[in-house]
Computed example of a mutant assay.
Amino acid sequence: MDPVLNPFKPGAGQRPPILAGRDALLHDFDIVRRRITELGEGDRSWILTGLRGVGKTVLIGELERVAVNAEWLVAKVEVRKGHGLADELATRLAASLRRAQRRFDPEKLESLLRVFKSFTASLKLGVINLGVEITPAAGYADTGRLSTDLTDLFVALGEAARGLGVGGLILVDELQDATAEEMAAISTAIHQISQTSPMLPLFFVGAGLPSLPSQLATANSYAERLYQYRTLSVLDAANSRAALMQPVIERDAVWDEDALEVAMAAANGYPYFLQEVGKAVWNFADGPRFTVEDAKVGTEIAREEVNAGLYQSRWDRATPAQRELLRALANKGHGEGVMVRELARAMKKPNASVLSVPRDELIKKGLVYAPERGVLAFTVPGFHQFILNQH
C-alpha cells in the first residue's frame, strides 16, 4: 500500500484518524462548552489521568481545537521539569490575548490585560509581549505569591470571558511534573472560581499519570473534591476494532477478519500500539485487502519499532540498581501493580525500605508510579513484556 496514504499516526501527541473510545468524554466537554456559551456559566474542572500512550495529550489537543474554534480565550501548557509553570502559562496566555485583541473590543480586555501585566511583573517573569502598552492593575496579582496572583489572574480571565460572551480554557499537560507549590496554586485558583455565583466561565483541564490525584490531594487537601477525575484506559475490543478498521475503510481498503484479530491481539487495546500496528500493516501489505500474513509481519515490525523507541529508551535511562527493581516488577506483576514489600522479598532484600532510593528515582524518571500506598506499577503498558523478553 502507498505509505503516503497511510492514515495511521503513531507518535506522542499526534491525533489518530479517529478518537476511538473517547466519545463519552468529548460529549461531556460539549455539554461544558454549551453551558458556557449559552448560559455564561462555568462547570467543575477536570483532571485526566492515564498511563503513557493512552491519548491524554491527543485529547488535550482536541479540547483546545474545539475551544479555539469557538473563539475562547485558551492557553495550553506542557509542564517541563526545570521550567516554571507560571512562565509557561503566561507565554501561552499572552499569545491568546494578542489574538483576542484582533477579534474583540479592546476595552473589554483592558482589565484582564492589566491584571496579566501585574502577574508577570510580580512574579518576575520577564518581558512578555501583549501587543499593546498597558499599565499594571494596582492591588491585583501583585503580591509575588503564586497562589494569590494566579487566583487573581484566573478570576480576571473568567470575568473577561463572560464580558466577551465566550469561555476561558486552561489546559495543563504532564501536570504530575509540576511542583507541589504549583499544584496548590492551581487548586487554590480553581477553588476560588468554583465559589463564584454564577460560576465564572473558566474551565481547567489538567492531565497526567495515575499518581496525579494523590499528588494534588497532598498539595491541597480539598483537591479530591474540587475536580472531576476522568481516567483514560486502554481500549476495549469494540473500540480497538474501530481504531483499526475505520481509517482503512475510508481509504478503500479492508482487513480480513482473521488479520484484524491478529492485530488486535498484539495491541491488546493499547492506543499507541494500535497506531503502530496499523501503520506497519498498511505499509507492508501489497494490496487493499490485509491478510493474516500482513498482520503477522506488520505486528512484528510494530513491536520492533516500539521496543527500539518507547521501551529501550526507558530501559537505557535506568541505573543497574533501578533495572534490578524493574526486572522484579516485571516478573512479579506481569503488567499489574505489586506491593513493594513483595518486590523486596523477591529480590532477597532485608526489607522494603532498601528499595526506597531506586523506587523514588524511577518515579521521578516517569518509569513507574504508585497507584496506591506501598504499591508500584509501570507507567507504560507492555513495558513489563519488553523487560521479560529482552532482559
Rank of each mutant, 00 (worst) to 15 (best):
T91M: 04
A243L: 13
R225G: 03
L175N: 03
E133K: 10
M339S: 06
A94L: 13
D23E: 14
A160V: 12
P16A: 11
N331D: 07
V248Q: 04
F290H: 07
F119W: 10
A280R: 13
M1N: 06
L73W: 03
G61N: 11
L244C: 06
T37N: 13
D23M: 07
V292S: 10
R345C: 02
D286G: 03
S356Q: 03
S45N: 06
A219I: 00
W72F: 08
E324T: 14
L343H: 14
L48Y: 04
T135E: 15
L329W: 09
V4I: 03
G139H: 06
V4W: 15
E174T: 11
Y311E: 14
G61A: 11
E372K: 01
K332N: 05
V68I: 09
H334S: 11
K76M: 04
R323K: 07
E305I: 12
P213S: 00
P7G: 12
K9I: 08
L73A: 09
L146F: 03
L93R: 00
L200Y: 09
N220C: 04
G333R: 10
V380C: 08
L164G: 11
G131P: 14
D30M: 09
V357H: 11
K332R: 15
E250K: 04
V68G: 15
E71C: 02
K349H: 06
F203G: 10
G335K: 07
F284N: 01
V32R: 04
Y140T: 10
W282H: 13
P106H: 09
L326N: 05
L123E: 14
L48C: 11
E174C: 02
L171P: 15
G167R: 06
G333E: 00
L5F: 04
Y270D: 01
P350K: 02
A266L: 06
S240N: 00
L388G: 09
F119T: 10
T37L: 05
E174G: 14
F284V: 08
R373P: 09
D142F: 08
E261P: 02
R22P: 07
R44P: 02
L109Q: 12
G55Q: 05
A237C: 08
P350E: 14
G42W: 14
P271K: 06
V354S: 12
L367F: 11
R303A: 10
A285S: 14
K81T: 14
Q322F: 02
V79L: 12
L89D: 11
A285P: 01
V68S: 08
L130W: 08
